[in-house]
Amino acid sequence: MAGILLVEDDPSVRTGLELALTRQGHSVTSCATGEEALDHVRTRRPEIVILDVMLPGIDGIEVCRRIRKIDSLPVILLTALGDDLDVVVGLEAGADDYVVKPVQPRVLDARIRAILRRVESVPADRLTFGDLVIDRGALKVTLKGKEVHLTPTELRLLLELVRHRDKVLNRRYLLRTVWDHGHVGDSRLVDTCVQRIRAKIEPVPSEPRYIHTVRGFGYRFSPP
């Protein structure tokens, strides 16, 4: 199904997840350190990175930041139960989703497949909003003629907001349609992803022109 890079320093957890994901039909390569992960991304780009936060040497958060400087491939964090700070910092670093340890392989597989659906289900046409151009066929966003590098999740969220232009979309709806979370989920995924998109497409992110917050409800795409 997917070419996965699994980055986990605990040998028993790494072996267990690698076997479980392989049984689900994925092609899994694993490593134990952040340095190995970055080398693999540069030389043998995977489709998805499953990244433990607590790694020896370069930790998972820093690995995610460095991946985002060179690639927009999806990243799912593995984080310990209750480590809310790691979740927030990881999402701000560019992670697309997170799974809490101890990891249930079926949950992780569901998140992987949801990300693949986000990548594959982008409709094709070209949308122009002033300086902002969204080419859904080419999976490309440009601002003033310069390409804006968005992750698949960021692109899918932006497209969902654009599809419902001038309508308010609540966080529960966005979690269901963008992240494919059938339950209520974590609204931080939505809020942090919106912040990342704003940082890339808004001239002044604190005074957004495109993606507006409707307090108590959610977000609305209303271009000037």
Rank of each mutant, 00 (worst) to 15 (best):
M1H: 00
M1I: 01
G3H: 10
L6P: 10
E8K: 05
V13R: 14
V13P: 13
T15F: 13
G16E: 10
E18T: 13
L19H: 04
S27Y: 10
T29I: 12
C31K: 10
A32K: 11
E36T: 11
E36W: 07
L38P: 07
R42S: 07
T43F: 01
V49E: 08
I50A: 09
L51S: 01
D52A: 02
D52Y: 05
V53H: 03
V53D: 09
M54N: 04
G57S: 08
I58N: 02
G60S: 13
G60T: 13
V63F: 11
R68K: 08
R68A: 05
K69E: 15
D71S: 15
S72N: 14
V75D: 04
L77Q: 08
L77Y: 04
A80N: 10
L85P: 00
D86M: 04
V87M: 09
G90E: 03
A95E: 10
D96W: 08
D96H: 08
V99Y: 05
V99T: 02
V99A: 06
V100W: 04
K101Q: 14
P102G: 01
V103F: 12
Q104I: 03
R106E: 12
A110T: 04
I115H: 08
L116S: 14
R118W: 00
S121Q: 13
R126V: 11
L127Q: 10
F129T: 07
G130H: 14
D135Q: 12
R136E: 03
A138Q: 15
T142P: 10
L143C: 03
K144A: 14
K146S: 14
E147N: 04
V162M: 02
R163L: 05
R165Y: 00
D166I: 02
L169S: 13
N170W: 03
Y173T: 10
R176Y: 13
W179V: 02
W179N: 11
H181K: 12
G182N: 12
H183V: 05
D186I: 06
L189K: 15
R198A: 06
R198V: 07
R198W: 01
A199Y: 09
K200F: 02
E202S: 09
P203D: 03
S206T: 11
P208Y: 09
R209V: 15
R209C: 15
Y210P: 06
V214C: 03
P224M: 03
